[in-house]
């Protein structure tokens, strides 16, 4: 059973040391196999493995989930969370057409300028624009969110121990009312998987059918959480599929090259043994 833990980043690092020892002692494989060996830290909740197909060694992104996930991000998350490293043109990668991307971009008013009169203005977005930020600056974001700053989601899947599994768990991990004996502070919400269990973000996905999927998928809370997590995993590592495809070819090539090199070595050394 594969589990990762909330918080206690240092625990993971210690395991990395141990895993590295194993890797040095045994083989490159040991490094890969040591990943699922992570164990729960004291007092924190184990994050369930959501079994995303892109988390497998050679997995790819589910295109349907990516597009649905973008819809969830657009209609729910982006009200508070920026993803400023993404451009609208990047959406071509999740399977949207050029016209669809242009339409999505044009539906946003992007600040631009100054114009010839020295004034800032807003214009419809273009495919080359970065995703529009919901707030002008961090102070505005805090002011609108009870003092809490909604983090930028561009690389969030790389920036949390547990990655996508953690994000998925967090999105479905709210409990209202909180478990007996726990008092949640004013304006905070109980979440089983958030470090410290008290999170300022209200449950963003709270009822089935909150988003109307165009492809007929039933929009349960879990489905929406899975879809948006897939989208965020892509946002953090848009190169993932290219990288793995290239990796397979390079490693296969190197194995063949290694075999040939070893054969030549044996031949050259044959007369001196």
């Amino acid at each position: 059973m594969r589990v990762l833990t909330t918080g206690k980043a240092a625990m993971l690092n210690g395991l990395k040391g141990a895993a590295l020892a194993a890797a040095l002692a045994l083989s490159p494989l040991a490094l890969g196999l040591a990943v699922p060996a992570a164990q729960a830290a004291e007092g924190s909740v184990a994050i369930p493995d959501a079994r995303f197909q892109h988390d497998r060694m050679l997995g790819t992104f589910d295109r349907g989930a990516l597009q649905r996930g973008f819809q969830v991000y657009k209609e729910v998350c982006s009200a508070c969370h920026a993803a400023h490293l993404l451009s609208y043109r990047n959406l071509r990668d999740i399977g949207l057409s050029e016209a669809e991307v242009a339409a999505i971009a044009a539906s946003y008013q992007i600040p631009d300028g100054p114009n010839d009169n020295g004034e800032m203005f807003e214009r419809p977005g273009r495919a080359s624009d970065r995703f529009r930020r919901p707030f002008a600056n961090d102070a505005a974001a805090r002011a609108a969110n009870n003092g809490a700053l909604p983090p930028d989601l561009s690389v969030i899947a790389k920036a949390r121990p547990g990655g996508g599994n953690y994000i998925h768990a967090l999105l479905v991990g709210y409990e209202d009312p909180p478990p007996a004996g726990i008092t949640v502070m004013e304006g905070m919400h109980y979440n089983k998987y958030f470090p410290g269990h008290q999170i300022a973000m209200a449950p963003p996905l709270n009822s089935d059918g909150q988003v109307q999927y165009g492809d007929g998928t039933r929009a349960t809370v879990d489905q929406m959480a899975r879809d948006v997590t897939t989208f965020l995993a892509w946002a953090a590592e848009p190169e993932l599929e290219t990288r793995r495809a290239m990796g397979i070819r390079i490693i296969l090539f190197l194995i063949v090259l290694g075999g040939l090199t070893y054969a030549v070595k044996r031949k050259i050394w044959a007369d001196v043994h």
């Binding site: 920036a159 121990p161 990288r243 990796g247 490693i251 194995i255 070595k265």
Partner: peptide, 29 residues
């Protein structure tokens, strides 16, 4: 030639890290 054998094995380990677990040795923070 003996070093070449080692270099290829080294490149396989290196490629595995780069292409399949690029952030494993880093820190999410």
């Amino acid at each position: 030639i003996k070093d070449s054998v080692g270099i290829v094995v080294y490149l396989i380990v290196f490629a595995f890290l780069v292409f399949f677990t690029p952030n494993y040795l880093g820190h999410p923070d």
